[in-house]
Design a protein around this nucleic acid. Structure first.
Lengths: 403, 403
DNA sequence: GTGAAAGCGCTAACAA
DNA sequence: TTGTTAGCGCTTTCAC
């Protein structure tokens, strides 16, 4: 069947070198001018599609429309002058050939852009998605990214220390920009990998550092305000339940040793807010993740201790709601027996009739701000730091200190 | 500065045609042999990276290592024979040049594969992510996809009828396979778009149809078993709260008109399960989304009606938990005054001390099954239908009918 | 307003 | 085991 110099390549195309190549090329070119002969190069109509295999190419469409490839390209991209009639003819040809538009792979290589924003989650996906904060930010982000023609590629984040430090996707997948959702210490392996690849980064709630765009909120200020509110109610014995300190994800009261080495900026800042308000927590309880069950565990421990705190300030609403549930479980009334405050300003209807006293952060805006930072980086501007405001929201879970 | 035939193209490369081109090519080739002269073609070391711009190419590395490009390629892909020493030399050169590995864009075009699986969510992301079912399935899916070198691109699903039927990402982004999370009726615009693009599809809980791989669970059987359990407890006045019927997302009791035109397979099947057990629900309450608040709304309405049902069977745990909350709110005891059952088998700690009676579906396995189906399609096999088993799980929310 | 030509960065078939 | 060669499908520059 095959002449010595012809062969079929991995994608089913016939390839020929030297003189014969020119002959074949001429044949394919001819085929383009006579769509009838295209059969061999086109996937059967509506057959079970195997790969992303999109056999019909712009060249085929151009040939069918009787224009050059470049003109056909213009018809689709709209990024140049083209006569209305010509465009119409091209689109008509595309319709006839069931051409669904330019192959993104070719376009991407040529443009040097993938149109993809890698989003590195702060955790394994399951846990990350259970956090409404992450989810709402992600939602705000995609809303901003959509109109820019950008899509979100999910990249699992650092799990625990038993896992390899970065997901292979991070080192190999195409992405124009990366967003790291939480964490991002200076020596973060994720940031290191991205830096090596030359991929610009937007860091959310991380440690500011050179060459990285940062988006965050005024959580230190918000936490200070929240604490002052609690102090204003007369509380002095105040415990605090925190987000994880680092990838070790320890659970329990943190001694001075651990307190001095908090790797995650967000945890450190929110803790600093408490101190700023002049409060020295009776206990700093570290959790392995911002989840209801960890809050409940903390609540049980703190509220059954001898010298029970009269107020518990939590670094997230999920943790706070766990504490509220634990209090209820123990027969303690909130806020009569114990006050509980959270952070984030989530709407947690299942906590009804209670509404958490919390610090509300603008989640959708934060997502949008991340999107703006992404757009900045993509446009070659270096993104300024974006810090969004927060607002104290009084609910029903804080009240005067019990007498 | 420029000769008539030289120009700078959009990505900053000098381009020249004809004879001059050969000269320039020779110059660049020379530069490759003498890394010192590369400066112009390489991004400055560790400067603020602008685009995904990764200026150093495999050719540069090959030149520096004194091998051909194809050999250098082998060193990275490992998909061919190469001497250990040669590979080492190439990797060494890569290190020196801060080359972080082959540009995925080039690789993708050449291979005809993007390594991307588009996941079309059943809803706007915010709502989709609030559903633990979706999230856990997604988690199981990414776990299976990771080792295959595939990443997940999030594609917002159909919102409501006021929005355009498909997200632009769906029609333009590169993806080797698409997964549609829910829905997928025969005339679904999402499926239509993917079919036109020749992208193979895995449909989750949708209507089986030609050329589409389907993954689902035995929800009809599970629902029948659940209903028989409730009937066995003596209940006869049984209402049911369902998932959405279609993109219209109506909320309230469904009349015969709506009941006859349920577009979403999953809703229809779970409803059929109830009927299979010989139960004619007193009310079929349609919800706009599987969320706690819609369950609560349904619960309030159903439990305040004159002829209150003694049991409410819900098509999801989230809906069921909303009903439980509504019952508590109304001062009704569960299950003494009313029995409530759900579907999915979620762990909802905040419902404590109650544990929902439910039908557990293997969420992580479902994600894995989707991953397997993806792998099948990618390998050119056509995927058989995958139906996973479910299991009745008795909790504390169902009990004997009140006397 | 249209066409010719070049080439993005890579992989794979084949020859050597 | 390595090198030569072709080309994936597209966009863009420049000439006309």
């Amino acid at each position: 069947m095959r002449t010595p110099r012809a062969r079929i390549d991995s994608r089913g195309f016939r390839q020929v070198c030297g003189y014969a190549a020119r002959v074949v090329k001429r044949r394919r070119a001819a085929a383009r001018r006579h769509p009838r002969d295209l059969r061999r190069y086109v996937a059967g109509p509506r057959k079970v599609p195997t790969l992303s295999a999109q056999r019909t190419t712009l060249a085929d469409v151009a040939a069918a429309a009787g224009v050059s490839v470049s003109t056909a390209s213009l018809a689709f991209s709209g990024s140049g002058p083209i006569a209305d009639r010509t465009r119409e003819r091209v689109l008509e040809a595309a319709r006839t050939l069931a051409y669904a538009g330019p192959n993104p792979l070719g376009r991407q290589l040529r443009r040097g852009r993938s149109g993809i924003v890698g989003v590195v989650m702060g955790d394994v996906l399951r846990r990350a998605f259970r956090d409404p904060v992450t989810v709402q930010v992600l939602d705000g982000l995609t809303a901003r990214l959509g109109p820019l023609g950008l899509g979100v590629l999910l990249v699992p984040g650092p799990h625990d220390t038993t896992q390899p430090p970065v997901d292979p996707l991070l080192s190999t997948a195409a992405m124009d920009v990366a967003v790291q959702m939480w964490g991002g210490t200076t020596d973060d392996p994720v940031l290191e990998t991205l830096r090596n690849r030359g991929i610009p980064v937007v860091l959310v709630e991380g440690t500011p550092q050179p060459d990285v765009a940062v988006v965050g909120i005024d959580d230190r200020g918000g936490m200070a305000e929240l604490t002052r509110h609690v102090v204003g109610l007369g509380h002095r014995r105040i415990a605090t339940v925190t987000l994880p300190f680092d990838r070790d994800r320890v659970e329990g009261p943190a001694g001075p040793g651990r307190l001095s080495g908090i790797a995650w900026e967000i945890t450190r800042r929110r803790l600093a807010g408490v101190t700023d308000a002049g409060v020295e927590p009776t206990v700093v309880w570290e959790t392995p993740a911002s989840l209801v069950e960890h809050g409940a565990a903390a609540g049980r421990a703190l509220l059954q201790a001898a010298d029970r705190p009269t107020a518990i300030i939590c670094q997230s609403d999920l943790l706070a709601s766990g504490v509220v549930l634990a209090a209820r479980e123990l027969g303690l009334r909130v806020p009569q027996d114990v006050s509980v405050a959270g952070f984030d300003g989530l709407d947690l209807p299942w906590l009804a009739p209670d509404v958490l006293t919390s610090v509300a952060q603008p989640l959708a805006d934060k997502g949008a701000a991340i999107g703006d930072a992404v757009a900045d980086l993509l446009a070659g501007r270096d993104a300024e730091e974006r810090v969004l405001p927060v607002a104290l929201r009084e609910g029903t879970t804080t009240g005067p200190v019990p007498v």
